[in-house]
Design a protein around this nucleic acid. Structure first.
Lengths: 201, 201
DNA sequence: CGCTATAGTGGTACTCAGTGTCAGGTTTGA
DNA sequence: TCAAACCTGACACTGAGTACCACTATAGCG
């Protein structure tokens, strides 16, 4: 029989990954991301450098892999959307589960964002990650649309929506979580919204 | 007296940089970006590895520094804009000099874009570069605006505009320069345009 | 024209991320 | 119980990027 979807080894691997990342995160916060080497992390976690490197594709991934599920979350939200209106509002709705995910443990997420935003290498990879979400989102939007637009049109809308999310997240982090993330996303979406912006333009 | 704005050494440095980049570009195209090391480049250019590294901050910069002027070009275009209408149209106009810059030597630019788009490391840094343009553009837009919006609003608009540019550039490159870059930028801007999109929404 | 401060150059040594491999041990599933 | 698949630590290696050194070239001034 083929291996079960969630094998024992997969669970183990996931748990080890989480623990390694947890310890590493503390090291990064204490000493600075760039100052901590894989050798340091191996020492701090009690695992060999080889093994540590097998669990993460690169140093940034040790911090950022936590945000991996977001891309799929957005796609799934779009897949289960009624699509009664346009792309832009569908994209806005698709971010709701992401907001839920982020504010579930606000202080932890903020700690991660602090480290990310004050470390250029991490910020860059974080943007890369968000960029990598786009093609799947575009595909889902085109797939579920009654009358799909030209690829470039959908691509631009998705890119803009992700930038709205990123901008809102940055402001949310600056406010140390005091401002409402959902409201900030609304604000940024409205800055580009066809109907609303037309009133002021 | 302080050194003149364009010293002899600065000119020399600029020329050497250009020549090193030219030779390096051929190597990259022939062998692949990742396969060419700084040692290879030193050998190909007849300069030591140390010296080569002094001219570029990293390997990607050897290819991408050509696109550095674009950010300033946009800012300057905004500075000399009459600003008779909204941010979005001002941003669109500010890309016109960039288009002129890119189509001045279409085949060369396309060759660069080919290398960039087929090399993930280069694509990533290219996006970083475009990201780095944003703050200056935001500042200029806020500075020249009669009634500046909240920072996040301007930031989102600039981000969206840059993504429109990036999307258009990607399609233009795929078409091998056959499609009109200006028209592609119009198309992508219109995908988010307040007044036009409202008609179809 | 020669002097001097400054900048460019090549060489060498170094750190560290990331890859690859290998032998030995452990776990899984039949 | 057993074989295949997997995990681990150890080691060696490549190559980017940094730092430092002594040496040379040159721009600009007196």
């Amino acid at each position: 029989m083929s291996p079960s979807p969630v094998s024992v080894r997969a669970i183990s691997r996931h748990a080890v990954r989480a623990e390694l990342a947890r310890v590493a995160f503390n090291e990064f916060c204490a000493t600075g991301f760039n100052q901590v080497t894989f050798a340091d992390l191996a020492g701090a976690t009690g695992v060999s450098r080889s093994t540590f490197l097998r669990y993460f594709t690169n140093k940034e991934d040790v911090v950022l892999f936590l945000f991996d599920p977001i891309g799929d979350t957005i796609v799934e939200a779009l897949a289960s959307d009624s699509r009664s209106d346009d792309d832009w509002h569908a994209l806005r709705r698709a971010l709701n589960p992401v907001v839920d995910f982020l504010i579930r443990d606000t202080s932890e997420v903020l700690a991660f964002l602090d480290l990310i935003y004050e470390t250029p290498a991490l910020s860059a990879r974080f943007r890369e990650k968000q960029f990598d979400w786009r093609p799947n989102i575009v595909r889902e939007l085109q797939r579920t649309s009654a009358a799909p637009d030209a690829p470039i049109v959908t691509q631009v809308r998705v890119a803009a929506a992700m930038e709205c999310f990123a901008a809102a997240l940055a402001v949310w982090r600056e406010s140390e979580g005091r401002e409402d993330l959902s409201t900030l996303i609304d604000t940024s979406f409205n800055a580009l919204d066809p109907t609303i912006a037309a009133q002021t333009g």
